[in-house]
Design a binder for these strands. Structure first.
Lengths: 204, 204
DNA sequence: TATTTTTCTGGACATACGTTCAGTGGCAGT
DNA sequence: ACTGCCACTGAACGTATGTCCAGAAAAATA
């Protein structure tokens, strides 16, 4: 009995420790994202990230396997947060007609507000075509995004099988107008909304 | 009169020289593309390219401004060749119904045969979101691709204004199945054809 | 308080990078 | 034979890179 209590206390401590570790890891990842989203995959060094995080280079290797592991973790983290944010839009109980414009508007806002972060995704996704270390992350995130779209479709009482192609269409217009926005086009977000809604109305 | 002849002879020589120079430049670019398509933008150094071309590093700077100039030139070169190839498909005088399946089949073949080259495009396109040095190339190539699609639409007696969205749809499915193909999926090219034709039939 | 464990440091290592430039070889014109 | 131009070399420069590691600092445990 006493031993059981001891063991459970030890387990508790171990959990608390790994929790603190996870917290610090996420903190480092957030700083890394800040650096990655401004410099991109190719030009971000571990020293850049360490400087932004106010830690030594060695610390990064204490929390992450290597550069690829760190960057994979960052992309996964920010993208999961984005998907959660989008999913919360689907939770609002609007009539089906409004929900799609609301959803597309949410994407449009995200172009405006998080443009620099989103380009990191497209950077890593391209990287995944070369480096097997990123293939897994890319595939898993893209599956999550397709599931997000499936959630939108089921919210509209539409067949979920169309999620794949609809995701591709949303991704294409999103990427294109994100690019225009980053190039300085002021009307990119509104053009995105118009073009996307026009395309969706033909598809579904 | 004699002076005029001399001048024209000089001009002739100068032209021949700049022609040889352009030829050698393209030769270097072709070797560079070979390297870039296997290593990607981030991990291709000028020394890799020089080695593949059997020239010294300095030679590359003799023909190109800097790394960004060389890579821009490469992407533009290969993409223009690809667009010309696709345009030649549009020249065949098939009935409008066949031409679109023929076109999509051409894209599918290109996934199979030139997968490694195509991923370079997506790599540089992502890079263009960070580095202004690539924004111009990306925009110009993307305009050419939209024009290619406009050619397809006009071949089908369809309004050319739809070229923008149709390009985006083609690009999205092409990129997605190219990615699957590179990840080892054997049925990616045929899936690309099926999904793309299904999407196009709803759009046009 | 003493000891053990975890967290973090920052310098060392080997290698790689883009770019420059003095200099070499060859070829055309005179 | 001499000159001037062009194509090209490859060493050198300064800086940057990912990774490793002996050891310091801090925190947890006893």
């Amino acid at each position: 009995m006493i031993q059981l209590a001891k063991i459970s206390r030890l387990a508790e401590k171990a959990e608390a420790r790994s929790c603190r570790r996870a917290y610090k890891k996420d903190q480092l990842a957030d700083h890394a994202i800040e650096t990655l989203k401004t410099l991109g995959y190719a030009h971000t060094s571990l020293r850049d990230i360490a400087e932004a995080s106010n830690v030594a280079v060695g610390t990064l290797h204490y929390y992450f396997e290597d550069r690829a592991d760190l960057i994979s973790y960052c992309v996964r983290r920010y993208k999961i947060a984005f998907i959660a944010e989008m999913n919360s839009i689907l939770q609002t109980d609007l009539e089906p007609e409004r929900i799609v414009t609301h959803f597309v508007h949410g994407l449009s806002l995200s172009i405006r507000r998080e443009a620099e972060t989103h380009r990191l995704w497209y950077d890593i996704r391209a990287q995944g075509m070369f480096d097997p270390a990123f293939m897994g992350v890319v595939e898993s995130i893209e599956n999550d995004l397709t599931e997000l779209v499936a959630g939108l479709l089921s919210r509209l009482n539409l067949p979920v099988e169309q999620a794949g192609p609809v995701y591709l269409v949303l991704d294409a217009t999103f990427r294109y107008h994100l690019q225009k926005h980053l190039a300085g086009a002021p009307d990119a977000p509104e053009n995105f909304e118009r073009q996307t809604l026009a395309l969706l109305s033909k598809l579904i």
